[in-house]
């Protein structure tokens, strides 16, 4: 089996995450979908590292994880504070910034 199958899996997972962002309204679930997309990218990075024969891809994936962790912390804090003021965690309810 070729490692390319991992890349195909990664692409499919990424697509599922993207569609999830589009269709879900709960901000937390949207956030989970973003995490899913990041994981999909990580999978492809690891696979590329293997195909290329260097560890740089794995280091990249490591950095992506760190950034994702930081992002989750801040993002969830934002969701919390929005929920505290608006009593809602729906992304559709935060629509004041428009025409």
């Amino acid at each position: 089996m070729s490692p390319t199958n991992y890349l195909l899996l990664s692409g499919l997972l990424f697509t599922v995450g993207a569609v999830g962002v589009l269709v879900r309204r709960n901000a937390i679930v949207v956030f989970m979908c973003i995490e899913l997309m990041l994981n999909a990218v990580n999978l492809s990075l690891v696979t590329f590292a293997r195909i290329n024969g260097t560890l740089d891809g794995q280091v990249m994936a490591f950095f992506v994880m760190v950034v994702a962790a930081a992002e989750v912390v801040v993002g969830l804090a934002i969701i919390m504070s929005i929920f505290r003021t608006r009593r809602s965690s729906s992304v559709d309810d935060a629509n004041l910034l428009k025409y």
Partner: peptide, 14 residues
């Protein structure tokens, strides 16, 4: 962390 926030926020109209 996600689960904690889910517990704090609870279910709502979203």
């Amino acid at each position: 962390l996600f689960l904690f926030v889910l517990m704090l926020v609870g279910r709502d109209s979203s």
